[in-house]
Design a protein around this nucleic acid. Structure first.
Lengths: 239, 239
DNA sequence: AAACTTATAGTTTATATGACCACAAGTTTA
DNA sequence: TAAACTTGTGGTCATATAAACTATAAGTTT
């Protein structure tokens, strides 16, 4: 049997710490016209001027991490109350060209229809990109994006977070198409309906779509309170 | 519709960054005698001297995060090749009493029988604690531990990582009891056997236990290569 | 040899899933 | 106005899976 030792000083936080700087980078997902999209910004200053990257910025000294992500997103999209989830820290010493910078990745999901984001931008500053048309990004942002997408694909099957990408009121087909797009699979309409309705997670609004050029579908709503109650009873969301 | 704007400077990394210091804290899980345990260290110096906490330490300036976690664990347990998984960053501004310190949490799973850890320690320095007998820890380490345990419970059902807590060769009952302990549930032996064997994930070693005071059970082994091949074919581990 | 412990095989029932089919309810086209 | 078209919605059926349970085998200890 191999022998292991623990140094007496381990875990001791008295030694001189190395100072590093920390940023946050957000992968903002949106869903429109059946396409999953990501919000990118073109950097206006600095050495990587003119190149596309994830929206992000420095964390303040007295700021909690989640709060910093919220603030940065507020500064970027002008809005609060965005669904946020920390991904993890990315810290390759070479990831940032001028000195050591560790970045903490976040996934954000927003309801496109609530945010007139694109209209507020000049084309050269910020834009939505379809997931399959992402350009080369600055630093390690492509790597962060890859990780982010993998996480989204896993999370969307384990927790009811997809609703954050849809309008308040949505049809079952919209929801299904969201899953199809994110997971890159095809699904069966009747089966999907049965499965999601059996969960008793959605509120039937007894309302129908308007201004559609076909039979109008019923509108549903996701209610987090219901989800929490179900979860307490042992329910576990799964797709 | 609300209107949103994006500041031109957003994402621009030219402004003066705030310097912070970054640590790593590891939640090291072990499984012995049917109990899930965690390795804690008693701090030998500093203001929190004598209190228990997670093993951890400062990250070096030119060191990748995963590498730092590996190094710290090597320094702490004397061994390499430990299963590691980053949890997330914890960064409440108040979490550390003297200045802003962000810590990155890690989960580590080790095979207790391979590591003569406890024997190498004096009782006052490092010890395994049963998961239900964790004392108050320094800083926010109890919070990190809670998060870590939740993550472990989720991960152990989605990926074949539990094997990292068992000896190389194990019986199906040992594996089942590991799941029972981690998930805090009771399982049915025949059903568990059928489910895990049907996955064709385990190597049947055609060997039996020795020195047990009852009918000896067959020994099995987990093979990551097999798992990868199955995954490529679309298999997805699930419990 | 009996009692006991754990291993392992099988059965039965309920339930979920995937692949379909069919029709309803509207809109658009001819 | 009717036919063609699109999407919504309700159902069936075969299959796979899971949960609960029974039974027996293979050893050890008393």
């Amino acid at each position: 049997m191999k022998k292991a030792l623990i140094k007496e000083e381990s875990g001791d936080l008295v030694e001189t710490p190395v100072m590093s700087s920390i940023t946050i980078d957000c992968v903002v997902f949106g869903f429109e016209n059946g396409s999953l999209e990501i919000l990118l910004v073109k950097h206006g200053r600095g050495i990587r001027k003119g190149e596309w990257g994830l929206p992000g910025g420095w964390i303040k000294e007295d700021e909690a991490i989640d709060a910093a992500a919220q603030r940065l997103l507020r500064e970027l999209t002008g809005l609060d109350n965005i669904y946020l989830e920390q991904l993890k820290a990315f810290g390759d010493p070479e990831r940032f060209p001028v000195g050591r910078v560790i970045t903490i990745g976040y996934n954000a999901l927003i309801k496109r229809e609530d945010y007139n984001v694109i209209a507020g931008f000049t084309a050269s500053e910020a834009r939505w990109f379809k997931i399959k048309e992402i350009p080369d990004l600055i630093y390690d942002h492509n790597e962060i994006l890859d990780y982010s997408l993998k996480r989204l694909r896993r999370r969307v099957r384990q927790a009811p977070i997809g609703f954050n990408l849809l309008p308040e009121k949505f049809t079952l087909l919209q929801l299904m198409q969201l899953y199809e797009e994110i997971l890159d699979i095809e699904m069966d309409k009747p089966n999907f309906r049965r499965k999601i309705l059996r969960m008793k997670l959605l509120v039937d609004l007894n309302e129908k779509q308007k201004d559609v050029s076909h039979r109008a579908a019923k509108l549903y709503q996701f209610d987090n309170t219901i989800y929490r109650k179900l979860t307490e009873k042992g329910f576990s969301f799964e797709f």
